[in-house]
Simulated assay, not measured.
Amino acid sequence: MRPSGFFEWLHEYVLARGIGGIVETVLALLAFGGTLSVLFGSSTIKAAAVVAAIIGILGLLITSTYGRAELRAENALLSELLRRNCEVAFRHMDNSLRINKIHAVNLVKDNGDGHSTITVVATALTDQINVFKIGSGSGWHQPESARRKVKIQVSSIDIDGIGGVRHTCTKHWRPDGKLEILTHLDRPMVPGSTISIVVQLFWPGKNTPLIKKRLPDTFSMKLQVPVEHLICEVILPPGFDAFYEPRVPSRRDFRYSHVRQARDTGHIAFRVDAWEVEPDQRVGILLDLKEPRSSASQVAPPPSVSSP
């Protein structure tokens, strides 16, 4: 519903003059009211000017809120239309891309935040590939207010000072709470060409179930195209440890390895490597935090006994 009357005029005025124009008008109104009150010795005039200024400020807040809501709805519609058109394009792009390697590193913060770095090396099998899609999700359904805090950056890989240039990307939240990221390449890929990109996700509260609620959580990946080598890695904050299980397809001939590493930095890391991953096969790690060991619960070692 569009504002009408005074608020419609104020909305158009803000668009034309900006916030600075409103501030200038309010200050001028207050100064004019103060001058009249001094000349005529009436505090009523000054009070009326203050009331008018307050009404103007309230109107500004209302029209600003309306403008933001309208813009947000329009952006959501454009994002949904873009996603639908890209989905149609992706259905016609089956077997057009081969993932040589994808390496996902999930850095878990002690406050439940997450920083994910996904490195992708892919080769084009057909021409006119100018969009690349990758998805990510968290272990709980986050509200809209939390989703807006997720920051994304996509860039090419920096090798010896060459690369590191950022790509344009758009995001879309699916009904199941998963985040889809569309990377728009500055020029289409040709058959045989290789692209190397890095996707960084700064995700507040992503690991809340694992860190805050101490519930088992899965870190995994599933792609719609074949992957030659997939690596899923999770790094816990210092002082945290976990039980873990690899999550891989149940095929007997499926090739994978897994390892738990204690690093010099105090972090415990878990890693799963998988090879020749087929489309729609999920690979990852299930973690369940161990209870922290307190000094009181630790059993003292028995005293040493020296032989006579």
Score class of each variant (00 low, 15 high):
residue 2 R to Q: 13
residue 6 F to T: 04
residue 10 L to P: 12
residue 11 H to N: 04
residue 12 E to V: 12
residue 12 E to M: 01
residue 14 V to Q: 13
residue 14 V to A: 10
residue 16 A to W: 15
residue 17 R to L: 12
residue 21 G to Y: 12
residue 22 I to L: 15
residue 22 I to T: 10
residue 24 E to N: 14
residue 26 V to H: 08
residue 28 A to V: 01
residue 28 A to Y: 11
residue 31 A to M: 14
residue 43 S to D: 10
residue 45 I to A: 15
residue 49 A to I: 01
residue 49 A to Q: 08
residue 50 V to K: 15
residue 54 I to P: 06
residue 60 L to S: 15
residue 63 T to F: 00
residue 68 R to W: 12
residue 76 A to K: 07
residue 77 L to I: 05
residue 80 E to Y: 15
residue 81 L to V: 13
residue 82 L to D: 03
residue 89 A to D: 08
residue 91 R to C: 01
residue 93 M to N: 14
residue 94 D to S: 09
residue 96 S to T: 04
residue 96 S to C: 15
residue 98 R to S: 09
residue 105 V to Y: 04
residue 106 N to L: 11
residue 110 D to S: 11
residue 114 G to E: 08
residue 115 H to Q: 14
residue 120 V to K: 10
residue 121 V to T: 15
residue 124 A to K: 05
residue 127 D to S: 12
residue 131 V to N: 09
residue 133 K to Q: 06
residue 136 S to N: 09
residue 136 S to P: 07
residue 136 S to D: 15
residue 137 G to V: 01
residue 139 G to A: 13
residue 142 Q to G: 05
residue 143 P to E: 00
residue 147 R to D: 00
residue 148 R to Q: 08
residue 149 K to A: 09
residue 151 K to G: 02
residue 158 D to Y: 02
residue 162 I to C: 02
residue 170 T to L: 08
residue 173 W to V: 08
residue 173 W to R: 12
residue 180 E to K: 03
residue 189 M to Y: 02
residue 190 V to W: 09
residue 190 V to A: 11
residue 196 S to Q: 12
residue 197 I to Q: 03
residue 204 P to G: 06
residue 213 K to Q: 13
residue 215 L to R: 10
residue 219 F to T: 04
residue 225 V to W: 13
residue 229 H to N: 08
residue 242 A to M: 02
residue 244 Y to P: 07
residue 244 Y to V: 03
residue 244 Y to I: 08
residue 246 P to G: 05
residue 253 D to W: 03
residue 260 R to T: 13
residue 263 R to M: 14
residue 266 G to I: 03
residue 266 G to V: 03
residue 267 H to E: 13
residue 269 A to Q: 09
residue 271 R to Y: 00
residue 272 V to N: 09
residue 274 A to N: 01
residue 274 A to Y: 06
residue 294 S to C: 05
residue 294 S to P: 05
residue 297 S to T: 15
residue 299 V to T: 10
residue 307 S to K: 02
